[in-house]
Amino acid sequence: MIEKMDTLLQRICVDGRLAKLAVSETGFIFDPQTGQSFTLNQTGLLALDLLKRGNSLEMTAQYMSDEYEVTMDVASSSLEAFLYQLGRYL
């Protein structure tokens, strides 16, 4: 499963797609390629920020689990769902 996730992450990162997203600290995102805008919730904002900085899925999940005091299981499974969601929109 983690393998497939990594490929998905790679795809989103192609051409710096993820990096090009205009992400504001308020949770407002603008995709200059499609003109679509989004809102992130606070955990989404954190996750996206960590991923944009090049953290692996594992590291991102670890960080979130520490920050919010949830188990690694909870953090990584919801991170997976989040990544799928990004994959659909980007």
Binding site: G27, F38, N41, Q42, T43, G44, S78, F82, Q85
Partner: peptide, 19 residues
């Protein structure tokens, strides 16, 4: 204005497209 950051209620990360 935006005070979400102080809140530590866990919610799965989520992105909402604007319709």
């Amino acid at each position: 204005m935006n005070n979400n950051h102080k809140v530590s209620v866990w919610e799965p990360p989520f992105i909402q497209p604007h319709r």
